[in-house]
Write a protein that binds this DNA or RNA. Structure first.
Lengths: 188, 188
DNA sequence: GTCAGTCTGTACCAATTGGTTCAGATTGTA
DNA sequence: TACAATCTGAACCAATTGGTACAGACTGAC
């Protein structure tokens, strides 16, 4: 069996794929090996604390992407309308290209809920928080901004469920587009 | 060990609870026995085809509840506005009192996605369908009704994710209330 | 070339998994 | 009471699980 060398980031990326397609529990180490080619020795080398360690690394990587591509652009945007339009666009592309699964949302179910509660809570709280601030900067005042932000993130997450259930990407892209339009309307 | 006799419906109800709290995969037969008191012999007596059979029975029971309490009242309502208000109310109570988990949504993730694809698809398609018809009867025409219906169900599902992630029922009740108001506004 | 550090494949392990089996307990009917 | 049908507990099983250990392969620095 020829040996394959890889780096940790690539391992995390491959793990993310398995967890999206299979779920965390059903993504056993054997399945991970079959689908990614990464063996047990390598997995434990990179993630000495085992499977939860792997999931934590995956969540951290996804979080890093969102910080860079969603949260930071919202935070530093000059124009709220443009920032929101960009957010809906990158988020739509991200999820459509990744099995229509949000791993943070998946971790709110079953036994993972407790294990990753802090990471999950931070992700959603930060997303809603930074979007609320963006709406504030765009002239939406008081509790309205927070409600709109919560509703927008909920719509995106609910859209993912609907699109998987109905097996139709157009459901998600439709929901995201209408969400974007709703936000755009109040920013004008 | 004194023997306990139960009926199938009660077994299904207990299983639903385990699957909500633990997830389907992590809800092993041992965990089911510990948390429900139902032993292996009984489980296989009622569900001869094993674990998938159990999940199928649970989904059928939940589906039955939705048919009776949500879909049928929407279908037969004289007043669309009242029907929609009632729907949001019963749905909110239902989910808040059941671990804030929609089992149909949970089955859109991981390996269960394929196993229960038909049941899941039917549940969401029917919910959206009957809500669309209700909106039609309330005077909303063309594609708007279907979009509003999809968005409403997505909001409810997304609200469940947010409320679990932020561990705060008020998030869900807020989202459901605003969703209800949005629908009510277009029906007036 | 040598050596230390990094990474890999694979053998091994205890525990758990879903499933099978069936004797015995329980219930309902005549 | 007798009997058939229904339900249960628990022993048993093969397969799989996550984890451990480590020899050997590989890489980079000197």
């Amino acid at each position: 069996m020829p040996r394959t060398v890889l780096d940790r980031d690539d391992a995390v990326r491959a793990l993310a794929g398995v967890f999206r397609r299979r779920g965390f529990e059903s993504g056993s180490l054997s399945v991970i090996q079959q689908e990614t080619g990464i063996g047990r020795g390598s997995l434990y080398h990179f993630f000495p604390d085992g499977k939860a360690d792997m999931a934590r690394a995956v969540l951290a990587q996804v979080r890093g992407w969102f910080d860079e591509q969603v949260f930071e652009p919202l935070r530093t945007a000059g124009d709220a309308g443009e920032a929101v339009a960009r957010m809906t666009q990158v988020v739509e592309e991200y999820f459509v290209s990744r099995d229509r699964v949000c791993l943070f949302a998946a971790m709110t179910l079953g036994e993972e809920q407790e294990t990753f509660a802090r990471e999950v809570r931070a992700y959603f709280a930060d997303w809603v928080g930074v979007l609320t601030e963006t709406l504030h900067r765009g002239g939406i005042s008081g509790p309205d901004a927070a409600d709109l932000a919560v509703d927008a993130v909920a719509a995106i997450q609910g859209g993912l469920i609907m699109t998987r259930a109905l097996d139709d990407d157009a459901v998600f892209t439709g929901i995201v587009a209408r969400t974007g339009r709703r936000l755009h309307a109040v920013l004008s």
